[in-house]
Design a protein around this nucleic acid. Structure first.
Lengths: 142, 142
DNA sequence: CTGGCTTACGGACTTCGTAAACATC
DNA sequence: GATGTTTACGAAGTCCGTAAGCCAG
């Protein structure tokens, strides 16, 4: 199965025109990149580069594959950008003492949800001592 | 960096509606899938699923991410299909004796290239004895 | 001899599975 | 108690770098 990292190796070679500079771009050693490309070619059953000359050349298959590879990389980038734009999920875990009237809790939660940007809310019921114990065990909010 | 395999885990959960069936679809154990999703959420800084109820639900972020994920998976599939359609690369490595006139060789190669579907051709020059030695060392064509 | 790709081999990281804990119904 | 997710930890796989080999100009 083709994984994303070899795809980045492949595109680096296309961009740089040789394996050595491509490896530098990817911040890996040149032999590592070499075996990565070999893996990719093996799993596709296709030679992607002609290494005959000083300059690396794309085969016809390689040229077609490059189109897909660019689209995939672009979509990965778009996905990360898209979710980066929104603030990270705010997880709030609230301990509520069972001694409090449930109606109070419901009302307070309703107000809080409308007023803030909390996406995920967990409510833990229990007596004060139990809630403190939970916090100590690292199940508190961050 | 998000790798493809977690993306497959993610889409399996979206499709199946729970982690257990998703793991079965991916042919992995359920805990393995669980940590995979956790990794994905951590690297995105976003919660993708609401696990509150019996049924898994997508968060708003998760829904948007699913769009990208589907596109990426589709493009991977397209790439593999695209290159699968053409026959695997035929690599032919030919040993040519230096005693033959170069014009013969050029003419023969030209005819061969037009007549066949060879994509990659390597020519090795040398005397007969040297060529046999190369073949013995496993550098012959398959 | 230089520049560049490939092969060989260990080390390190991480994916994976089993087992157990935790949670909800 | 049944169903389903998370955590813990050891085993297996694989990505990676160093070193050496191979090839062309």
């Amino acid at each position: 199965m083709i994984e994303r990292y070899v795809l980045r190796y492949f595109l680096a070679v296309v961009d740089q025109g040789n394996f050595t500079r491509a490896a530098a771009q990817c911040r890996i050693s040149q032999p590592t990149l070499s075996v990565g490309i070999a893996k990719l070619e093996a799993s596709l059953g296709q030679t992607l580069f002609l290494r005959n000359n000083r300059r690396i050349e794309l085969t016809p298959s390689g040229t077609r594959f490059a189109v897909h590879a660019r689209r995939i990389e672009a979509e990965f980038a778009a996905a990360e950008r898209d979710l980066q734009d929104t603030a990270p999920t705010k997880l709030v875990r609230i301990g509520v003492a069972t001694t409090l009237p449930p109606s109070w809790i419901a009302a307070a939660l309703g107000r809080a949800r409308r007023a803030s940007t909390i996406e995920r809310l967990e409510v833990v019921e229990g007596r004060s001592s139990e809630l403190v114990a939970l916090l100590d065990r690292g199940r508190g909010s961050t």
